[in-house]
Amino acid sequence: MTDRRPPTGSSLTGALLSLPLVLFLAAAVAWPLASLAGHALSDPGWRAVRQVLAAGRYRTALVNSLGLSAAAALGSVLLAVAPAWVLARERFPGRNALRTAISLPLTFSGVLVGFLMVVLLGRIGAIPEALAYLTGRRMFEGAAYTVAGLFLAYLYFELPRAVMTLESAFRRFPRELDSAARALGAGPLQRLLKVGLPLAAPALRSTLAVTFSASMGSFGVALILSRRFTVAPLEIYTEMTGFLNDEVAGALALMLALSTLAVDRLLSVGKR
């Protein structure tokens, strides 16, 4: 009965419990990122930023990252819709095994994915070897190291994310809405266009955001596979360790982070 603390007391408890998180985020996220921005902006005439934006390998790397990530995000979401729907809404034997198989690559780091691509499509990869055995002609040797190979590798690690994220959204769809549409005379196509897709739009957008930002940050895959086609995380690494060019690395890192965040924000506009 004596415990009649004012509401400020309880919000003080909340603030105290969150304090470690606040301090950590400030020290390990906000401070480094702010310093990154500070460095780039305090630089006289924004030299490093301009250097990155000027035509050349830095700008190419940034553009490549954006393009490859957008393509991988779109491709994986498109390919994921049907499997996600099947896993969420259909019942059939082996469904859980399928889900586990599809989610397995979620535990792979980028280098591992790059390695798997080499295993499949490297100079003596499994696919070229098998094709040579079957047809007698050598094909797709070293395809892993081309842009197409890089794209496939990105698809490989994005597809599980896309399927799982979409599946959990699809599972939350009220089943009765579909029944209601049917009772009102809507056929399968109409139900997809008038009910399914409008309801799925937010999930599709957030899945795009998830896959896009994962691709933008992907470093290990390119580290293994990239030959001539370079991406921003790789350039940051080379500038920093190879050339000790911290200004350019910083500017590139800042722009990579900002463009990823910007797309992420853009895709979550109007979400709730």
Binding site: S213, G217, L261
Partner: peptide, 12 residues
């Protein structure tokens, strides 16, 4: 989650 690891590692 949407800040590339390399960018964050570098700034750290």
């Amino acid at each position: 989650l949407s800040v590339p690891g390399v960018a964050l590692g570098f700034s750290l």
